[in-house]
Design a protein around this nucleic acid. Structure first.
Length: 361
DNA sequence: CTTATTTGACCATC
DNA sequence: GATGGTCAAATAAG
């Protein structure tokens, strides 16, 4: 890390940590008070986590990006309205991440958050790796990419028409290593499709029944939760790298996906493993000292509590901004949960370990 | 039948 | 104009 000597950063850091400590204390108190509801505790936990995340982000950002203030949440700016079914015909193009657009700097950036993951099918486990992230995707296109040996598949959320869920993903098979798939996610799920995979024991409390409007981004927490849920699959090695073409951006915490892969001549038939696992994962900002660029993660089929050490320097202004905005919006919408961080919905394993060495190849 | 995939055409951006 | 991304009709699958 550089020593920018930023008192601002330091101050933020201290503030966040102090806040986190205070929250932890509150939580401690609440734990001892039987009358305290589980909800309250949960909120506190979330806040604490958010605080940690913020702190870590401050640390990560302090060296490179200092104009994006990690605490500047309440920026008033809305994303492009996702408009339910009748989507016109252009919603994409976040590839123009021109932060500095010369003229009309108002808002050229409707970009949706985007992040890429490389999923590797473990050769030993058989190629029929169940690549399923718990969401249902519908393929809507396939394209031969220049320089790529295999075509790229385009998927979108099945519930797009019904619920206006704008999440999409692209699946690109690696030319050299056909066992590696590069999956690029875009946007968040705003659908409730997790309901069929989540046990009803935990109703999502933080969503208000809004009155008759389609709301693009209010269920962020749920999505993240469910997307966190989907993270692990058996027999796969996931290489998460927060990256974008130009800058690095790191998503919340997601993993593989793909209901089934059909690349060119190859068909992966997924045996459809049960989606009802309820692992607890941990995710945090963590920079591995050795693997600076990527971090590997292999998920074992049974034990689902491994930690993925991803370099979470979410520096892409695009991504961060949007996500923060989204989070802020959703927070405003649902006062029940003070989730105000893009990565706010991570769950930490009580036996929280940063033990990377356990599953590194 | 309904629903998902395939595939060429169309569109936007570089 | 080349490339990537999406649409939508045709087709396949359940």
């Amino acid at each position: 890390m550089d020593n920018m000597g930023d008192w601002e950063q330091t101050k933020n850091l201290v503030n966040e940590l102090t806040l986190g400590r205070e929250l932890a204390r509150q939580l401690q108190i609440h734990l001892n008070v039987p009358s305290s509801s589980r909800e309250t505790r949960e909120v506190l936990v979330q806040k604490i986590l958010a605080s940690f995340e913020k702190s870590l982000s401050v640390l990560n950002l302090s060296s490179s990006i200092r104009e994006t203030n990690p605490t500047g949440f309440a920026i008033g700016m809305s994303e492009s309205p996702p408009s339910l079914s009748g989507s016109p015909r252009s919603e994409d193009s976040d590839r123009d991440f021109k932060d500095h657009d010369p003229k009309d700097g108002s808002r050229k950036r409707k970009g949706t958050p985007r992040w890429t993951q490389q999923v590797r099918v473990n050769p030993g486990m058989g190629l029929e790796g169940p690549l399923d992230d718990g969401f249902s995707w519908r393929k809507y296109g396939q394209k031969d990419i220049l320089g790529a040996k295999y075509p790229r598949g385009y998927y979108r959320c099945t519930h797009r028409i019904v619920q206006g869920c704008l999440a999409t993903k692209q699946v690109q098979r690696s030319d050299e290593d056909p066992t590696i798939f590069e999956i690029t996610y875009r946007g968040r799920h705003t659908c409730n499709q997790a309901s069929h995979m989540l046990p009803p024991s935990q109703p999502l409390e933080n969503q208000e029944p809004n009155s008759g409007m389609e709301q693009p981004q209010q269920q962020q927490e749920n999505q993240q939760q469910s997307q966190d849920l989907l993270n692990i699959r058996s027999g796969l090695k996931v290489i998460t790298e927060g990256l974008d073409s130009h800058e690095q951006s790191v998503p919340p915490s997601h993993f593989l996906s793909g209901s089934n892969f059909k690349a060119e001549n190859q068909v992966f038939s997924p045996p459809t493993v049960d989606k009802s696992f309820k692992g607890i994962y941990s995710q945090s900002n963590f920079i591995s000292p050795t693997t600076s660029g990527k971090s590997y993660f292999s998920a074992s089929s049974s034990g689902m509590q491994h930690y993925l050490g991803g370099n979470q320097n979410f520096q892409t202004s695009e991504f961060e901004l949007n996500d923060i905005i989204s989070a802020a919006t959703s927070t405003t919408d649902s006062p029940t949960v003070g989730l105000d961080f893009p990565f706010g919905n991570v769950e930490f394993d009580p036996n929280f370990t940063f033990d990377n060495s356990g599953f590194l190849p």
